[in-house]
Amino acid sequence: MFVFLSRRLLFLVATLLVVSFLVYLLNEAAPGDVARKILGPYATLEQIALLTEELGLNRSVFIRYGEWLGGLFTGDLGYSTLFKAPVGEIIWDRLANTALLAVIAFALIVPLSIVLGVAAGMRESAALDRSISLASIITTSIPEFASGVFLASIFAIWLGWLPGTSTLVRDGGWSITSQLVLPVAVMVLYDLGYVVRMVRASMADVMREPYIRTAVLKGLSWPEVVFRHALRNALIAPFTVILLQINYLVTGVVVVEMIFAYPGFGRMMLEAALAQDIALIEAGVVVAVFIAVSTQILGDLAYMILNPRVRLR
């Protein structure tokens, strides 16, 4: 257990170092570009040289990466050239906004996917299974921008029940809660079908096991077979899949944030990438990789605890 954890944590740190250095290399391979991006197309060459000098961009990439890494350990994330403010003042607010969407969406996805997945998987190929499976194929097939447009045209434009933008500012009399409905709906619609299919596959596998046949043949009632015998084993495998959705919900929602003008983490990263705002990109990448790898570690750990037959290296 201890060996497993320390190996995985080492992998986490190594991934963070490798990825952040690669991003640094990529973004700063051409130092002139950064100053040009900040000053715009009409700046003179002297002005650009001056700013490059001032920002210290003419020194070696390795030295600057070292400095940035040093800053990271003292809690200094650098200065955002796009927002003209320290990165620490921007990134946590944006992350908190996205986390708000993620928490609500996750709280809906987990129970819904378990109920639908178990209902579909308990009687393979029955009418209920076929309709749930088909519905989940179709909902995962709709790109987020398309479901955003579909839902907004129905509920915001046609019916007028909900706001079409979610800026988290109380404008036009729409409460913050009402602004969260459509973005969360798009996220749930896109992600739910995938998780449902995972739960269904696992449930269907368990229902084919000999011990389930024994339980049925010895005359247990159907709810007893499903809830007391099948459910526990069927939820072990999808548990990891469900945890991994956190990853998508926090770092993958850029499209939803764009459609609804939501001030979140993904949109911030898009803006930072387009403006080549290196400090903000780096901080965002570190956060994103940290979330990704730590949810994986959490998933593996949980799997090990839930399933004593598994030994992890």
Partner: peptide
């Protein structure tokens, strides 16, 4: 690595 962030960068 989150795919969409990789694409963006």
């Amino acid at each position: 690595f989150p795919v969409i962030i990789l694409y963006m960068i």
